[in-house]
């Protein structure tokens, strides 16, 4: 007996309502979870690019080492420059080997000769990048200047849109599932009017009468968020091997187990919160005193 069996009785008696409530909760948490993951992922990628040396100047093989050193010293003295790092042909090969260590074919094709030496210049502020780029363009024997401000800008706008669209969808879906569960529980309360009255007449405290309805809301929230989490994790697990090559060097994969645990805890907490909120709203509306 007790609260749980009463709650189970409530749910079993009206499986369609329970199905509707759990479905909409699941959808909410599925989509919320997805946008959460996207938002976390894109933030990590953005951080990575923001921290990366922001301008890379590749030199022709004709560039003299003394010139490169002189350029480095000059850059280091500038206010706008945070740090300067020289990457020799050999360093470049090492980096290349590390990145493609699983791909013997690509490794064979490359030797230190064909990789250019470069310096990575990071600016103290992102706004200084164009100035620095202009300055560096005037250098002799420069083969290429990679100027990832565009990448960062694109990422910023992507991250912002993901967050905004996600926020709107999450709010909308949360409201839909909130109202669905409120409606389901209100119907239950209406159907159980007589039972509630009898319980009151024999001296049941308010909490005893309310508990099964609360528990019902919580169960909808918990089951919905749990299924939402499971599906998200399955998608991640299956998608990881496909995504990994796209994000070489970015600390995105493998996803630490702790992250899955925190993700689960967050979803369950939100599910519980939504369930409690819905049942409290229904109870306050239809079960005064």
């Amino acid at each position: 007996m007790g609260t749980f069996s009463n709650t189970w009785r409530h749910i079993r008696r009206s499986p369609y309502q329970a199905f509707a409530a759990i479905s909409v909760m699941t959808l909410t948490f599925l989509v919320s979870g997805m946008f959460f993951l996207l938002s976390v992922g894109s933030t990590i990628v953005l951080k990575y690019f923001e921290q990366k040396p922001q301008i890379i100047i590749f030199f022709k093989d004709t560039k003299k080492e003394a010139d490169v050193n002189e350029l480095q010293d000059r850059l280091k003295l500038m206010d706008k420059v945070a740090s300067v790092k020289f990457v020799s042909k050999e360093d470049a090969l090492a980096i290349y080997k590390e990145q493609y260590k699983n791909d013997p074919l690509l490794l064979e094709m490359v030797s230190a000769d064909i990789l250019p030496a470069s310096i990575e210049v990071s600016a103290t502020k992102i706004e200084y990048l164009p100035d620095l780029a202009n300055l560096l363009k005037k250098e002799a024997d420069v083969s290429d200047i990679v100027f990832p401000e565009d990448v960062v800008n694109i990422l910023v706008s992507w991250t912002t849109s993901i967050r905004q669209v996600g926020m709107l969808l999450v709010i909308f879906l949360s409201l839909v599932s909130l109202f669905t569960v409120v409606t389901v529980i209100s119907m239950k309360i209406a159907l159980k009017r007589e039972e509630i009255e009898i319980l009151q007449l024999v001296g049941a405290a308010n909490w005893y009468i309310r508990m099964p309805f609360m528990a019902e809301g919580i169960i909808y929230g918990l089951v919905g968020s749990l299924i939402g989490w499971i599906v998200n994790v399955l998608i991640l697990v299956y998608a990881s091997p496909l995504l990994m090559p796209l994000f070489v060097g970015i600390p995105l994969f493998p996803i630490p187990l702790v992250f899955y645990a925190i993700f689960l805890a967050m979803m369950l907490a939100l599910g519980t919160f939504l369930g409690i909120l819905a049942s409290v709203l229904a109870i306050n509306r239809y079960l005064r005193n």
């Binding site: 007996m1 007790g2 009785r9 008696r13 039972e195 009898i198 319980l199 007449l201 024999v202 001296g203 049941a204 405290a205 005893y208």
Partner: peptide, 26 residues
């Protein structure tokens, strides 16, 4: 102050045992 109601007021979706148990559960 407990009362036996003229119209019984039993709960129809609970067994006899559960109906009686209510008074103790509360």
């Amino acid at each position: 102050v407990a009362m036996v109601f003229q119209d019984f007021k039993v709960l129809f979706d609970r067994t006899v045992g559960e109906n009686v148990a209510i008074a103790l559960e509360i």
